[in-house]
Amino acid sequence: MIKAILVFNNHGKPRLSKFYQYFNEDMQQQIIKETFQLVSKRDDNVCNFLEGGSLIGGSDYKLIYRHYATLYFVFCVDSSESELGILDLIQVFVETLDKCFENVCELDLIFHADAAHQVLDELVMGGMVLQTNMADILCRLQEQNKMQKAEAGISAAPARAVSAVKSMNLPQQLRDMKLPDLPQAIRDLKF
């Protein structure tokens, strides 16, 4: 069984957290903090398994993690899971995210944590591995997103427009706008 799946960045900021056993919010934050401290002090060329972590689990539990660029993906699992299998699963998870977001980076997870959750839900259910085949997961996700799009239909158009405007970030664009060199333009102007 998987007890928890945590994704946080190099500074310990949570980007995605899924607990398959109930902890209250404070405890969740403490677990994330502790896990981060355990994981972050390890070099990149050491093994990906970690025993310990007093808050979550006990001797039967292991932390299995991978570090990608700015993000740590940590799975807390008990002894019924295969260590290497879980490492694989993390890879599948990340690759699926990569496919969904097209070159996934931390920002994608920041702004679309819900989408990341949807990916995870197709991968793991209630702490048990559901599906490990990436093509299958992607197919399921696409079908669900299609449903969502069909629902939104025309009524979502204004909202989409507004959010497009919002995300345009006008001040920055104004600043970035390149006006042609006016004096030169004037000089070039032929009467």
């Binding site: 290497l84 299998g85 490492l87 694989d88 890879q91 690759e95 490990t132 085949n133 990436m134 093509a135």
Partner: peptide, 15 residues
Amino acid sequence: ESKRGYEEAVGISTP
């Protein structure tokens, strides 16, 4: 059939 079998993800060093 295509689903069958355990696809080990590419780019993983270990398994």
